[in-house]
Design a protein around this nucleic acid. Sequence first.
DNA 1: CCTAAACCTTTTACTAGTAAAATACCTGCT
DNA 2: AGCAGGTATTTTACTAGTAAAAGGTTTAGG
Lengths: 197, 197
Amino acid sequence: MTAVNGRASTTASGADAGSAGGSAAAGYGPAGDTVAAVVRQWQAVHPRIDTAPMEIIGRINRCAALLQQAEDAPLRHAGLTRPEFDVLGTLRRTGHALTPGEIARETFSSGAAVTKRLKQLGERGLIERHGDTRDRRVTHVHLTDAGRDLVDRVLPEQLSYERTALSGLDDDAQRGLAAALGELLVQLEGRLGGPRG
Amino acid sequence: MTAVNGRASTTASGADAGSAGGSAAAGYGPAGDTVAAVVRQWQAVHPRIDTAPMEIIGRINRCAALLQQAEDAPLRHAGLTRPEFDVLGTLRRTGHALTPGEIARETFSSGAAVTKRLKQLGERGLIERHGDTRDRRVTHVHLTDAGRDLVDRVLPEQLSYERTALSGLDDDAQRGLAAALGELLVQLEGRLGGPRG
DNA sequence: CCTAAACCTTTTACTAGTAAAATACCTGCT
DNA sequence: AGCAGGTATTTTACTAGTAAAAGGTTTAGG
């Protein structure tokens, strides 16, 4: 990913901090986080504006950017980008071979992007392709032993890193946040993701 | 945002759906969102693993990806990418000229990326540069009238779009989520963003 | 004064994504 | 059978980011 790129100045694409409002780094005052500072600036410029969405969406984006930056460390140490790890992880957790199309749907990426990643991962011996004998348009992708071992080695490191990143919140706060995000996600997936098949 | 590119197949950067675990699109069962389905798959493969971090981080990433996709619509309609709008918005909300370095810090992007965006935006007549007379390394960037008008026109559309995206949650849920995310963000910014100056 | 170090911005070379076209194949209809 | 249309994957042309180096300028020390 670009997404995996470090920023830290963080990444682009990845993820910019601000929602509609962009983002702020310096000089955040009384209330605390950078998003609150951005909202305050907008309020000063356009007092009538309803900035409520920024307080959720801006924060989600900013959290995603910061976490990604942090999470990249263990992955990069293993020589993987996040999208590459997503491919391997998808194969590992489903437990069976998948077609490139299925991987694309599972990881929410384009088919072309998956093709490129599979090429890379294949060259490194982490996955293999086998053509379908029935339908020769289709290929089946599966993890090699090396690929499976890599996932099983990296995943605990990754989760440990994530636990550390979240450790500023107590267990109750974490459970509450997970539940609230789950509620939002159900809404968004129904609304934006389409009444999926 | 890279984190914030549209995907939706969405984009990179932006943001993949899964945290450590990658992401799932199809076949989500009882509990509801795609992240819950991914977590269930991992539990089946590695029953001892503590997947709690995925339930927060995976959901943040997935929400960011979905929202981005949705939010890109009004911006694209105005011929802007999100990072470009972030630059314009930063100039608008601070209310005065900024140097490229300051813009980079405000938008959490690299200096090189800002240089490219400023070039684009300058060619479209939305911003202008003026060299500093004291320190000739420095340039000052400010919005043109056209740039300011564009921001003032797009921002309400953007916020309106965001409000719609969030409308599945009632006001209390939105306030609670904003507060919980703010708490997390304060922690992350202190921990990962550095004890900023 | 003059040089070394630090700084701000831009340039260069490269990477990884996207959209759309191309390729190859299957399915169903007549 | 043969062809129209749809599907799965890859390829092509391009875009926008990154890291690192370069260019030009100021600041501090001797």
